[in-house]
Design a protein around this nucleic acid. Structure first.
Length: 365
RNA sequence: GGAGGGGUUCCCGAGCGGCCAAAGGGAGCAGACUGUAAAUCUGCCGGCGGAGCCUACGAAGGUUCGAAUCCUUCCCCCUCCA
């Protein structure tokens, strides 16, 4: 089964779209959220927990899996799906974000990025061709082009130079792709400059990808800038292709971006915050370590149907967290992922019923 | 009975004449987290609205311009010998 994207319907009052992606490992209802599983695991969850939470697609990472255990090993062991026992679709990030996040450990060269491994300090050159080769070895359903995630702040000139590299690498990734079943997505950069963002769309779209991502946001820029980039650029992307806003975000960010026509998201927020004791609900955010929950017998969220909310009290979850128990991370992550999945279900229902704007009002005042 | 070691802020523990409201842990309290170098990181943590003052280093006296730090007595604790 080849990758495809079908737009089922558009919301009547916003730019939101309801759609369906088909991949070699199953289909995905969009708008969708991908839990982040950088190292071949969504931290603290078993694949069956992910399934139960409603996750349809997850994200893995080229850089991390290349460094450890190595993409060739994973290929020999049957590919990433088999290796990690996740039968559903997987999107792999290219390592472009590590160009940003591992800033001190890498050097950008015209032909690629020279990384000093964060694990043992060894040197590795990640080229666009290599990034595609690794992702094909992993067998990911959706591969991402190697890009430079432009940091914030950056001058117009710096952003322009960075963009030139991203465009050049996008072409090389496109040429390097060999497996027709897998999708390859291009990435729009251009920092906070609208003219460069537009230029990026004009350069990347003609190369011809299976989907388009908006990258280089949520890297420290003010939220209104991120929103305006999303608002201005998402509608410029081809209607018949998946639109993916990389690394976003909070529930309100997601609802906003959906209203601008974005179909896919990924973010560490639900998983990392869960491990750090921040639990999402439809009302308040709950910092589970707070003393106020010491004897609170209620679940995290009475409207949530997750395993954690059905079986455990805030008091118990607080105890587990304070005591440093592993189960705290497991139960907290189950809740936050389910919360995000329920959010996406609410979003899809709203689009289906042409009332996303009403839902949006609940999130963005 | 003899010899030696010790009692420090909630706990452990450093300090051994002024730079000490007292290092460093822990506990406690609060906050952050956006394509994961994150089970991480940050802040607060004797009292009083601040420069400041008050109360604090087993107890009581003393020496000194100044004491958690030196001296005396007392009260506890631990180790070894009898």
């Amino acid at each position: 089964m080849h990758f495809s994207f079908e737009m089922i319907k558009k919301d009547a009052r916003t730019k939101a779209r309801l759609g369906k992606m088909t991949t070699p490992h199953g289909s995905v209802d969009t708008p969708t959220f991908m839990p982040v599983g950088t190292q071949g695991t969504v931290k603290a969850l078993r694949p069956e927990d992910l399934r139960t939470c409603g996750a349809q697609i997850i994200l893995g990472n080229t850089y991390h899996l290349y460094m450890r255990p190595g993409h060739e090993s994973i290929r020999k062991l049957g590919g990433l799906h088999t290796f990690m026992n996740w039968p559903g679709p997987i999107l792999t990030d290219s390592g472009g974000f590590q160009v940003y996040s591992l800033g001190a450990l890498r050097k950008i060269l015209p032909e690629g990025v020279m990384f000093r491994s964060h694990i043992d300090g060894s040197k590795h050159l990640l080229t666009p061709q290599k990034a595609v080769e690794i992702q094909e070895a992993l067998g990911s359903d959706i591969q991402m082009c190697l890009d430079e995630c432009t940091p914030y702040p950056a001058t117009h000139k710096q952003t322009q130079d960075s963009l030139a590299l991203t465009t050049k690498w996008a072409k090389l990734c496109r040429e390097a792709k060999t497996n027709p079943e897998h999708a390859l997505f291009g990435i729009i950069q251009g920092g906070t400059y609208l003219d460069l963002r537009r230029q990026s769309v004009e350069e990347i779209v003609p190369i011809g990808f299976d989907g388009y991502a908006l990258g280089g946001v949520s890297v420290g820029e003010p939220k209104d800038i991120m929103y305006s980039i999303t608002q201005d650029i998402a509608p410029l992307l081809p209607e018949d292709k998946t639109r993916y806003l990389m690394g976003v975000g909070t529930p309100e960010d997601i609802v906003f971006a959906v209203s601008q026509g974005v179909d896919m998201f990924d973010c560490v927020m639900p998983t990392r915050c869960a491990r750090h004791g921040l639990l999402f609900t439809n009302n308040e955010k709950i910092v589970i370590k707070n003393a106020r929950w010491r004897e609170d017998n209620r679940p995290i969220d009475e409207t949530c149907d997750c395993y954690t909310c059905r079986n455990y009290s805030r008091a118990y979850l607080r105890h587990l967290y304070i005591a440093g128990e592993i189960l705290a991370m497991i139960l907290n992550t189950i809740h936050n992922i389910r919360h995000y999945m329920l959010l996406m279900e609410r979003i899809r229902s709203a689009i289906r019923e042409d009332r996303l704007d009403e839902l949006k009002k609940d999130f963005i005042k």
